[in-house]
Amino acid sequence: MTPAALLNLARAKGATIATAESCTGGMIGAALTDVAGSSDVFDRGFITYSNAAKVEMLGVSIATLAAHGAVSEEVAAEMAAGALARSAASVAVSVTGIAGPGGSEFKPEGRVCFGLATAGGTRTETVEFGAIGRGEVRRATVAHALSLLAAALA
């Protein structure tokens, strides 16, 4: 779904959006705010690239980071829930992953964990985009995050 179509869907539903981004560094928020008039739907974005930022800005637990690492569904869930709690949004999406290059046997390049939080709760999923290059992983992450938001608003 295009950012403009997502914003129109949110308007139609009376919804507002927040983002919590790590590996995309603000690209989801940028995609939404590239559309003129987005300010009535897009509340705010949190760019929490470091673990300290995740803790300080979103309330991610140090224990969760220690137990699961930043690239985990557990952290993605806490990021999304934190963005929802710290904003005026009705839906929040979060992303944390390994865009590359690099990765490990346990957390390979191209793995991105997503969180989606609404008043009804938080859900997570992990997508393995593969070692398609840093830029492509980040672009695919933005597209998937917009799709998750659209599905939540449908």
Score class of each variant (00 low, 15 high):
residue 1 M to R: 02
residue 1 M to K: 04
residue 2 T to W: 05
residue 3 P to S: 11
residue 3 P to N: 09
residue 5 A to Y: 08
residue 6 L to G: 00
residue 6 L to Q: 08
residue 8 N to R: 15
residue 12 A to Y: 14
residue 13 K to Q: 14
residue 16 T to G: 05
residue 17 I to S: 06
residue 21 E to Q: 11
residue 26 G to F: 02
residue 28 I to W: 03
residue 29 G to L: 03
residue 29 G to C: 12
residue 35 V to F: 07
residue 38 S to W: 03
residue 41 V to T: 09
residue 42 F to V: 06
residue 45 G to S: 14
residue 45 G to T: 09
residue 46 F to D: 03
residue 47 I to G: 04
residue 47 I to C: 10
residue 48 T to P: 00
residue 48 T to D: 08
residue 51 N to Y: 11
residue 51 N to E: 15
residue 54 K to N: 12
residue 54 K to Y: 12
residue 57 M to I: 01
residue 59 G to R: 01
residue 61 S to P: 02
residue 70 A to S: 13
residue 72 S to G: 10
residue 75 V to A: 09
residue 76 A to M: 06
residue 76 A to T: 06
residue 80 A to P: 01
residue 82 G to Y: 03
residue 82 G to F: 09
residue 83 A to Q: 07
residue 84 L to Y: 07
residue 89 A to G: 05
residue 92 A to T: 05
residue 93 V to N: 01
residue 96 T to N: 10
residue 96 T to P: 10
residue 96 T to K: 03
residue 97 G to R: 01
residue 97 G to F: 09
residue 98 I to N: 02
residue 100 G to R: 01
residue 108 P to E: 11
residue 112 V to N: 04
residue 113 C to Y: 05
residue 117 A to C: 06
residue 120 G to R: 12
residue 120 G to S: 12
residue 122 T to A: 04
residue 127 V to R: 09
residue 128 E to V: 13
residue 132 I to T: 10
residue 135 G to F: 13
residue 137 V to N: 01
residue 138 R to I: 14
residue 140 A to K: 07
residue 141 T to L: 10
residue 143 A to Y: 03
residue 145 A to C: 12
residue 146 L to V: 14
residue 151 A to S: 14
residue 151 A to L: 08
residue 153 L to K: 01
residue 154 A to V: 15
